[in-house]
């Protein structure tokens, strides 16, 4: 900079957004089946060369089309974390436990979800089970599972 405005108050900061009213995300091909199954209280995975992948995503890591299968528990925590502060560093009223939860019959992936448990008791390999919303409240979203809780 070879010159500058005199004071910081002489430079302007102009408000703006990059928003629309809302985005509507279609669930995709496997995503639709996955959503329908959630409504029924079932969880689908995808059979790929090498094993079952959760959640189903229409194609496998090698590019081949995956085949839908139902996955069965037991579900275990593959890895977890505990969020204590939001991105700005404001402490949360209560820490939030998030985990990657993998059914035993899956080889790769799992569901990322909230675990309702005392943060100090959570460990890798801990068995958990999904806590479903009542059937009439389910909408086919990942939030049809309210959270996972210790089995």
């Amino acid at each position: 900079m070879v010159w500058k405005a005199w004071r910081i108050g002489d430079v302007i900061h102009y408000p703006g957004t990059q928003e629309v009213e809302k985005y509507v995300y279609t669930p995709g091909i496997h995503g639709l089946e996955f959503a329908k199954a959630l409504k029924e209280g079932r969880i689908l995975g995808m059979k790929c060369p090498g094993g079952i992948h959760v959640p189903p995503k229409t194609y496998c890591p090698d590019g081949s089309p995956g085949e839908l299968v139902e996955v069965k528990g037991p579900w275990r925590i593959a890895t977890f974390t505990i969020v204590y502060e939001d991105i700005y560093g404001n402490p949360l009223p209560e820490p939030q436990v998030l985990a990657l939860i993998r059914p035993d019959d899956a080889r790769r992936g799992g569901l990322i979800h909230i675990v309702k448990a005392d943060p100090d008791t959570v460990y890798i390999g801990m068995e958990v089970k999904p806590r479903w919303k009542p059937p009439e409240q389910r909408t086919g979203h990942i939030t049809d599972i309210e959270y996972f809780e210790p089995a």
Binding site: T26, P27, G28, I29, G31, L32, K57, T58, Y59
Partner: peptide
């Protein structure tokens, strides 16, 4: 105008 596929699936 409206496809069911996600962007990722369309690309694939």
């Amino acid at each position: 105008r409206r496809l069911q596929e996600t962007p990722r699936e369309l690309a694939w």
